[in-house]
């Protein structure tokens, strides 16, 4: 049952992403992406990471994507039809690279299939929190500082002269 849900979510995720990258307008791409991120969040939940799932929805689908929307609106870009679209000549190196990467990864993955019993263990939030604040306390501090720097930098870049 859960496996079925997983595969459905995977399909939504991949299709949503595909639509996002081929969308003609940035706003539409954002909306497609929000859909696929929701699917991703559910997958996280299925993989026993409810906290990450929540953060995915809140930070990614919520904050970051909305930030993108804000910026798109702020820029007051001309009508979307005038924006240069990727031509075929732009796509084919991308496609070639994608094929190469996917092929290589497929080879690597399939060659490493082991008889591991397919089973996932849930990680309780308590364990997650312990690991985060006890083992990786310094990392948390550093990340918080980095966020501060990003804040200052964004303010500096965005100020009007």
């Amino acid at each position: 049952m859960e496996a079925t849900v997983f595969y459905i979510l995977a399909a939504i995720l991949l299709i949503g992403t595909l639509c996002a990258i081929t969308a003609r307008q940035a706003v539409r791409a954002i909306v497609y992406l929000v859909v696929s991120f929701f699917a991703l969040a559910l997958m996280f939940y299925l993989l026993g990471a409810p906290l990450i799932a929540a953060f995915e929805v809140i930070i990614y689908a919520g904050a970051i994507m909305v930030l993108f929307l804000f910026v798109i609106m702020m820029l007051e870009l001309e009508s979307p039809e005038k924006l240069p679209k990727p031509r075929f000549s732009d796509w084919w190196p991308a496609l070639a690279l994608v094929v190469v990467v996917v092929g290589a990864l497929a080879v690597l993955l399939l060659s490493h299939v082991r008889a591991v019993p397919p089973g996932f263990t849930d990680i309780p939030v308590r364990q997650f929190a312990y690991t985060l604040f006890k083992q990786y306390g310094v990392a948390v501090e550093i990340v918080s500082m980095q966020l501060l720097f990003a804040l200052v930098g964004a303010l500096y870049l965005g100020r009007r002269k």
């Binding site: 190469v100 990467v101 290589a104 990864l105 080879v107 690597l108 060659s111």
Partner: peptide
């Protein structure tokens, strides 16, 4: 990056 991946895949094959 793709080249490195190809090399790894070639090693496996």
């Amino acid at each position: 990056g793709a080249l490195i991946l190809c090399y790894l895949a070639w090693l496996v094959l």
